[in-house]
Design a protein around this nucleic acid. Sequence first.
DNA 1: CTGTATCCCCCAGGATACTG
DNA 2: CAGTATCCTGGGGGATACAG
Lengths: 138, 138
Amino acid sequence: MASDTDTGSMSTDSFDSLAFDVFSRACPSRSTLEHVTGRWGGLTIGALYEESLRFNELRRRVDGVSEKMLSQTLHALERDGLVLREAQPVNPPRVDYELTPFGREVAEKLLGLIHCVEGRMDEVLASRARYDEARGGR
Amino acid sequence: MASDTDTGSMSTDSFDSLAFDVFSRACPSRSTLEHVTGRWGGLTIGALYEESLRFNELRRRVDGVSEKMLSQTLHALERDGLVLREAQPVNPPRVDYELTPFGREVAEKLLGLIHCVEGRMDEVLASRARYDEARGGR
DNA sequence: CTGTATCCCCCAGGATACTG
DNA sequence: CAGTATCCTGGGGGATACAG
């Protein structure tokens, strides 16, 4: 693990002058973005945005995730400073996961995206129907 | 292709009462979200947000994408109604890709996320350093 | 309960060649 | 230029067993 080839430089660009090197493979933010938008990252963050959860609660909440992937995802997010892991030294062990302030900020942006897409799903579905009919025979 | 198992129902939830079934595997918006946030989807949309581009221009812009993946990505985005494909019947062929209004909206949300992360990359890097040092020996 | 270690399968996706 | 078709490999990720 910790195999990212990240170097420490990136551009601080404005919204209008988009010259960021996210397009470059070597951009360090690309890996974080991948953790956030990855298959399980987004769902995990979404779940934690509602409330702080324990490992198996998360596992139940995020439909379809395996122990291994949840573990990996959580580690990546914790490493990036999006998730805080709080282990209580009790028996049986109890570990709570919660979003950091940064994590919450990212979660909100992510939710903005999700809502944007969900609110337009009828359009999407219609577009898909059109597309499939046009070249559906083939 | 067009192998999504999407059914046409989803929840229209508010930002506060998050009861969306995005967490469910069967949620139709999940596939669109995957197209948008996928490895190449986001970068492609980001590139097209700046300007309308042709196939090979895109290929050069999005560092590391293969012909096959760009083609696939573009088809998925076009099908979902995010990208408009305009083929001019000239020789040699010329095809321009541009974002639809919906595509631009999604792009903006996406850029919001990207900027949020990029603007905090120093934190991320610091967090990673801390994390790696803590359990770096292992 | 909270994970880590292992095995292994499958397909995302890269390389290459070819067509219109 | 704008793609499609084919082949092939790496690693994403599931299942299971095990450990603290």
